[in-house]
Structures are given as structure tokens and as C-alpha cells.
Design a protein around this nucleic acid. Structure first.
Lengths: 334, 334
DNA sequence: TTGACATGGTAAATCGATTAACCATATGGT
DNA sequence: ACCATATGGTTAATCGATTTACCATGTCAA
């Protein structure tokens, strides 16, 4: 590997001068000619600074960890794209971590931090994690931001405007003429799920519709949870004419369970799900969804971590607004 | 952060001695008492070696990159689990890379290698990548293994036994009484897709069934590709009574397209898809799949990269054998 | 008693990049 | 003419861990 001294030698300057030129140090004092020779030498030798050397000296790794419960959740793709882009524009690298490993005691995150491989962390905690579970992270001086889950507490947080998303879904159904709406929600222990449920309730009230407790389930976000939700709702017949599903994965299960009962979507039941993901368009019928500003969430999280800062902030991403993507799972009732 | 000299000081030895003790150097010569003092000091101070320091000195980062075209493909989850586990047992870290970034010219991989942040690479190339596209990686001294795609060429490869997987699917359908089988395959430019198609042809022949070219599509692995495949097959009516779908994502599209035509699964058409993923169980009907040894593939890839070695090897993971997971998308014809 | 070897360590160099602290020469103002 | 200040650099220290090359003592055999 070619190193800084090789570049300096070729350019006929000291390593020190080369370093300052290459890092774009504004306070550097070199003649334009020298500058050019250094840059040209670096280009010619295809110089890439050694990360260990730089990182050791500066004690910064220019790397932040993005830790999510499930990388394979399609919701994650857009989040990661936003994060990537923001990181690239700041010269940061992102390493992906899978939150499972943060829970077991092999304790990936703590090791990465201890080894100084990571300057900061964006953490989406798994469903059901309580603020107390994060206590051990609070003392660290490392910037941490919790996304998409808690919206207060001793760590900085960034969340989506879940209530607005659900409200968009409710308004769509109401404008189609539905008056009997149910919610297939996440676990009550989950802060996101609570925000979505609160949004559901207030959207119904705003529309002058009744809130029927027996039409609200809180079983979780997986496909199996969605299926179970239909079983549960069935017990308190009659079913609502439309369902807001708080997560697209659950919506797959909901759809399957409805098919299994030989009901039709949307003629018997309309469905709107939160989060717009490729397979919303690959089901039958394709599912109407509400698209959330996940890309912006990712970018904001990187920005927040990169800027470090000691004070704890709580932020909600409201822009762009939740976008209704109408497909074929919603129609007028009856 | 506590460093080696802190530990050494507390234990009353030199940094040199502490280093050897902590790294478990077999050739070290220290008294048992000293050893214990060092270990105890490290424990007490909660010492974690600084990665940059170590990496700079040893010029190894103990990190390998796992680069896949789509982290959000559920197929990836198991692969990553196998890789993680093997890596952990070897004291290696894995960073996830998204292959999109390897293609654009910001050239993540080359930077990571240039910066010496990575000792080796496990690379799943995107559909349609040709051996020539990888030429620039060949010269590198860094260990690279290509997984799940090419099965020969100048770089080491590891693949699944795709033919055996497809064969398992064909045998299942044949044993149910199907004789008119179609294949919804991947792009012809894709090596995996070619292996699957070859497996399909030879399995049909082995079963004494005819190969009908008009029942073989090669449109790709996405949900939309699956939908398009049905449109294409439709033109050469009559449809086969059963379809082997080379990828579960495409199977979602196939299922949707079949529903859209008011045909029934499995009574009109049976479907088996390759790869067993959560949403196979969340569709209607739940899809019969063939589960492949992805975990073993991930582990083998890590092992191969970790062992470095200069000679190029080509390997196929055949164990455990492809496993048929019967759900409700397959039944006897008619 | 002396040389050889084992025992239990230590000192110092090294990896590559950054940066604080200098230094020589030129230029300008008074 | 001479001090002050630019200009255009260079030297050397430093980050933390590893590793090569040593160095005291102690022990044992001849």
C-alpha cells in the first residue's frame, strides 16, 4: 500500500506538507505549485490514507453504527439510503449492526465503542425495549440517537410523525365512506405503537367517528401477528368495514387471514397499511399504503450524531408529509 | 479510555509483558502470578484494546466485509447469521455493505480496502454482473470470495446446489401427479438462474417429463418480474398445472397475477418457490418452498476468507440438503 | 568455579497520519 | 538599515499496541 511518505517523496515535500495539502487544511501555507505537485503525486500513486493511522492519531474513526432490529425489514432500506447519503456528504462511513447482537451478551456495540471503532450510534431498539434498558448507554460520552421508537428519555431521539401517518390512512377510509374502522396495532409496550394508536383515536374523533375498543388489536408487527389480529377481531363480530394496519408486514398476515375466510378485499374489508414497501405492490390485491419520510429520518439521524453535541434533543420528522399511495385494497364499503 | 499502559501500570509490569499476556501469546514467559495480576488488572479497568492501535501495528483489521445486492432480501438474514456466527468464533468483525454502493463510482469497497479497514470480502454480485466486471478485483492480494452467483472464473466462489433445490421442487410436484411443469426463472445473464434452469431441465428429464420451452420464463427475481412471467406464459395457453418459481420474491408476483386472473392456487395452478422466508407463510395461500443451506453458505464464506490462501477454489454447499417445506400452494392437479 | 542455559522479564522500534512548534528567507514599512 | 511580519515550508512528538532485541538473575552440570 502506498503511504503518505511515498506521496511526499514523489512530490518532493515533507510528509507534513503533504498531509496538510491532502486534508484540505485551510490554514496550510504552501505555494500553488507545491499544492499541485502533491495532489498530482497522490493521484498518480492512487494514494488512500490508511484508516488505522489516521484514526489512531485523531482518535476519531469517522464511522457511525446504524443498528436496527431487523436489517431485512424493507422499511430499513429507505432509512439506510437516507443515512448513507448524509454520511457520504460528511465523509463518514456507516456500519450496519443487527440489534439482536446488541441484546445478547456478546455485546457487539459495547465492544465496537470500547475499541474506538465507532464515533457514534444510531439505534433503533427492538419492539418492547423500555427506556430503562438503555440506562447503561446514558453515561457514555459517545453520541447516540434513538430512532423510530422512544420519543423522550435521557437519550436523544428522532421519530416519525406516526400520528399523522395513521391520520392520513383514517381520512382516506373516511372519505371513501367508511365509518366502522379498526386498527391492527403493535404491542402496547412499544412506543411507536402507542403513538400510532393515539393517532388513530384522535383521527377518528376528528372525523366524528366512534372509537370501538373491540376493533383495536395490539398483537405486534409480524405477519403472524396480523393473522392473529383477524382471529381476535372475528370474535367480536360484526367486523369493521375497514382496517388500518400499523405495519405492512402485519398487513400481509391480515390479507392472508381475510382470504382464508373467503372474504374479499376491498369489497368486504378495506385495508390501509403504514409504510410503503415493494411487496405492497406484489400482493393480491396490491395494498394501499401510507409512505413515511424514512429517508429524511435516516439523514437527520446521521446529522444529529455527526454534530455530536451533549444536550439531549427530541425531534419529530414531519416533512415531507405522509403520502397516501392508493392501490387496490381500499374502496367504498359494501 | 483505558489503555494497555494503564493495565500494565496497575499490574506493575511493562506494557510489553501485559500485551503478551492479554493476547494469549503462547511463547510468553511470565510467572503465573504475574499473568494473574495482568488479567485481573485488565478486568478491573475494563480494558478493551484500541482497534486503531492494534490494526496499525499488525496491519490487519480483523474485519471482513459482507457485500450483498440487497440487505433487505430476507434470503440475506440467514446468510448473515451463518456468517456472524463463524466470524464471532474466529474473533472477526463483519461489516455489511450494500452492493449498490459498490457499483456507483463512489466505490465503497475500493476505499475500504485502500484504507485497510478490511482484510477480506465476501461479495454477492448483483444479478447480471459478468465475470469481466470483476476483473479489477482480481489483481488485489485481498482475499475475496464470490457467493451465490458465479461458480467459476479467476476468483474463489461458493454457491448453493441450486440444481438440487429445483430438483426437490420438481420431484414434489411430480409426485403429486403434475406432468405439465413451468419454470419462472431469473435473467439468463445470471449464473444462478442458469444453474436453476439447468437443474429444472435435468430434473424433468430424470422424471421422464417433457421440457416445454414456452413454459420457461427468464424475466428476473422481483415481484414485478413474477407478475410479468404469468402474462407471458398466458400467451402460450394452455398454462402448465404447476410452476416452479426460482425465487420467493417473484413468487409473490406470480401469486398476485394468478389471483388477478381469478384462478385458484393450488387447484388451478400449484406453486413451489426456492428459498424459505417468513412471508412465504404470510401469503394466501401460504407458499410451499424449498429451504436452502444459506447459513452454511455464510459460514463457509467467512471461513474461506479468514483462511486467506492464494489459490482460487470453487465450492458448492450441498449439506444439509434442500428441504421441502410443504404449505398450501401445492396439491394434486385438477 | 565457570560456562551454558533457563527464567522472567524490560527497552525501544515500529506501524501511518496528524499537528504543534520551529526555522530560514523574503518583503515591506519607517 | 533594521525590525516586523509573511511566506513556505520542515522536525519531531504523538496516538496505542505489538514485537524484536536485549538484559539481569538463577540454576545446574562438568
Amino acid at each position: 500500500m502506498v503511504k503518505l511518505t511515498d506521496v511526499a517523496a514523489l512530490a518532493g515535500v515533507s510528509a507534513s506538507a503533504a498531509s496538510r495539502v491532502l486534508s484540505g487544511d485551510a490554514t496550510v501555507r504552501v505555494s500553488e505549485a507545491t499544492r499541485m505537485r502533491v495532489l498530482e503525486a497522490a493521484r498518480q500513486l492512487d494514494y488512500v490514507p490508511n484508516h488505522a493511522g489516521r484514526s489512531l492519531r485523531t482518535s476519531r474513526s469517522s464511522t457511525i453504527a446504524l443498528v436496527v432490529p431487523d436489517v431485512t425489514s424493507a422499511v430499513f432500506a429507505e432509512l439506510a439510503n437516507g443515512a448513507d447519503q448524509e454520511a457520504a456528504s460528511r465523509g463518514l462511513a456507516i456500519v450496519l449492526g443487527r440489534a439482536e447482537r446488541v441484546r445478547d451478551d456478546d455485546d457487539w456495540l459495547r465492544r465496537m465503542l470500547g475499541e474506538s471503532r465507532i464515533d457514534g450510534v444510531i439505534l433503533q431498539v427492538p419492539e418492547g425495549t423500555q427506556p430503562e434498558d438503555l440506562a447503561s448507554m446514558v453515561e457514555r460520552e459517545t453520541p447516540i440517537v434513538i430512532i423510530n421508537s422512544l420519543d423522550d428519555g435521557p437519550l436523544s431521539t428522532i421519530v416519525l410523525d406516526d400520528a399523522a401517518g395513521i391520520s392520513t390512512a383514517v381520512n382516506h377510509l373516511h372519505s371513501l365512506g367508511h365509518e366502522r374502522l379498526g386498527l391492527v396495532g403493535g404491542l402496547a409496550s412499544n412506543a411507536t405503537a402507542r403513538r400510532r394508536e393515539a393517532g388513530f383515536r384522535s383521527a377518528l374523533q376528528a372525523s366524528g367517528l366512534p372509537v370501538r375498543e373491540e376493533w383495536i388489536t395490539r398483537l405486534g408487527y409480524t405477519g403472524a401477528d396480523g393473522r392473529a389480529a383477524i382471529e381476535l377481531l372475528e370474535k367480536s363480530a360484526p367486523l369493521p368495514t375497514a382496517l388500518v394496519v400499523a405495519n405492512l408486514n402485519a398487513a400481509l398476515g391480515v390479507l392472508a387471514a381475510i382470504h382464508a375466510r373467503a372474504l374479499r378485499v376491498p369489497s368486504d374489508v378495506s385495508i390501509v397499511a403504514l409504510h410503503d414497501v415493494w411487496y405492497a405492490d406484489a400482493t393480491w390485491p396490491p395494498i394501499t399504503t401510507v409512505r413515511m419520510p424514512l429517508r429524511q429520518l435516516g439523514a437527520a439521524a446521521v446529522a444529529r450524531v455527526a454534530e455530536g453535541g451533549q444536550q439531549v434533543t427530541h425531534m419529530t420528522i414531519r416533512s415531507p408529509e405522509p403520502l397516501l399511495v392508493i392501490r387496490q385494497s381500499t374502496a367504498a364499503p359494501g
